[in-house]
Design a protein around this nucleic acid. Structure first.
Lengths: 343, 343
DNA sequence: TTGTAAGCGTTATCAG
DNA sequence: CTGATAACGCTTACAA
């Protein structure tokens, strides 16, 4: 247990010397293959020496030699979005367990392409892309790197996704059951697959009920609270719907806020439904009805799949099945107000 | 502009060959010192060759040679806390600008010591510790690494902090001005410097007004929404205060929620004040009165200081001055209810 | 089973 | 100013 008194770090050389073996032999024992062909006695001597010296492998050197970084890049639009933070947390936990570091790449800091650039330079082992719109990247932006897409099914790259169509359908289902007929939709302006599908599922279910989504009741804005607020303000100007589905909870919260500001009562005057079920959804007033998306699980599975891809282990994660979502009814949605003609 | 047709990456070797110079010469031109002593003509040839081949330096190799990783570790309790996410975002932006990658180290994935371990193994250039309680780490946990503490002033390590005492004082000030005399405090159980100071500032100001914080009106719980809710429930059991200061907004939101559940009206029956001013604070009902802490700025400055420490540039960030905080009055606090005796 | 030699892609030190 | 030559710390053939 000699503490590292010297300034120099302990290297395999030192360990080898102390154990009286050649440096590569020591390396063999200490490196990846625990099952390496080396005499039990020798191995023990090496291990003891390593323990005595407090040897810690230098990951950088190892990376250079193995041409791998033992690190994953996680590219996300913005960690400040609680849903994204959840995804990242799930991914980080799995990554840590598997011995990978996580390089956080937030698009508020640099563009996706810039991040990919630096990740490449670092010989990144794999990259997780969350809601980045991989389809709209330059064609060879991702060649040569292991990639797993989050919530964006693609022919070209593996990914883990949630059942976004079901999410939209569930929202519609719920509102229809509450006898709403005048429906609105608020979604992000950006072209992200999951959001498109949520919208599609919503519209689809309305059609099945013989309804349609009037174009003036469909608003796009940035996928944030203020975006939702602005979109709702516009919706309220003329012929306001009796119920609105928002593509994510942040927008929904903005919409709720705007309704309250406008003096409306929820859910008496208008019903709102969000999507994601971020923790926050339970803390606004009224509590937000929403479709729960398993964010942490999404991140965790994506990371697991990526690690398997990297390590070429037989695929045990089912990459194709969509993660199920479920509806959570809370206070922001209720029975439709009786039609004006009746009053 | 020959695209990298071959499978092999382009190395300095290739560039040198194409430029007709030795490999180290090429390296000299391409590496850090743009002012290196090398003939203008030669340099240009090298640069042209590099451009032609689309040369991208290999950061891993560079790291091994220079014994630096060009990466920063950011250790945080939990990115899902919006305040923390803000800090991280600020840090990431500065890091990216300065050419550093960010390794995210969330304590929900591993312990601080484990993270420090892996960061060391990666020859990390510097580490940002946010609300980690550096003081309670083993004495030499941080030796040999560049460290900047966030919101935890220390003799041993440089750091960037906010004026947490002022935060507590401002909260007290506000509530006193509203004629509250029965005050409570909800804080985290964990021993984090900033939180202790917020409490201290609060109590200090009360003392100056001739008041004290009754021990049964001081509650500790986890620094989350549910923690705040639980703490508030206890506070309400007997002799509830007319106003409560919560050490952070998450707890405050939980407290608000609990009050509403208990049928209280805010701010008529009870006033609540949070701290941080996370975005969310404006989206709960009633909107949360709180002390704004410049989270992004905190992360950005800390990262800047860390980079300067690493690069030994003359210190231009004033590490000692505390970042100012300011009070934001919103709907969750109001004039104290008239004392019961008067009714 | 073990040691020798070579290499990963850079940077750094020195001669010339 | 330039070009050998030697690190950096580890892995991986290939011999012995």
């Amino acid at each position: 247990m000699v503490p590292p008194i010297s300034g120099r770090r302990v290297t395999v050389h030192d360990v080898a010397a102390r154990a009286g073996v050649s440096q590569p032999t020591a390396s063999l024992v200490l490196s990846q293959h625990p099952r390496a062909r080396v005499a039990a006695a020798t191995r023990q001597r090496v291990l003891d020496a390593a323990a005595d010296l407090g040897y810690k492998p230098n990951v950088v050197a190892r990376s250079l030699a193995r041409r791998r970084s033992f690190a994953l890049g996680v590219i996300v639009p913005d960690v400040r979005n609680p849903f994204v933070a959840d995804v990242v947390t799930g991914a980080q936990r799995v990554a840590a367990e598997a011995g990978y570091a996580v390089l956080l790449c937030d698009q508020s800091a640099r563009t996706v392409m810039q991040h990919l650039e630096t990740l490449r330079a670092r010989q990144i082992d794999g990259v997780l892309l969350d809601a980045v719109g991989a389809a709209s990247l330059p064609p060879d932006a991702l060649t040569g790197v292991n990639v797993v897409l989050i919530d964006e099914p693609s022919e070209r790259w593996p990914g883990i996704a949630t059942d976004a169509i079901a999410a939209g359908r569930l929202a519609a289902e719920h509102l229809l059951a509450l006898e709403h007929r005048e429906l609105g939709y608020i979604g992000p302006a950006s072209d992200v697959h999951a959001f498109r599908m949520r919208e599609r599922g919503f519209v689809m279910r309305l059609r099945e009920a013989g309804l349609s989504l009037a174009s003036h009741r469909l608003r796009r804005a940035s996928a944030t609270v203020t975006g939702g607020r602005d979109a709702m303000r516009q919706l309220l100007v003329s012929a306001p719907p009796t119920a609105v589905f928002c593509a994510n909870d942040l927008m929904a919260i903005g919409a709720v806020k705007q309704c309250l500001t406008a003096g409306l009562h929820l859910p008496a005057d208008i019903s709102l439904v969000g999507c994601d079920d971020i923790e926050l959804a339970r803390y606004v007033t009224p509590e937000l009805s929403t479709v729960a998306i398993p964010a942490r699980e999404l991140g965790a599975r994506a990371a697991r799949l990526l690690v398997q891809l990297i390590e070429q282990t037989p695929q045990r994660v089912n990459a194709t099945r969509l993660l199920p979502v479920r509806f959570i009814a809370r206070g922001s949605s209720g029975v439709a107000p009786s039609p004006r003609v009746a009053s």
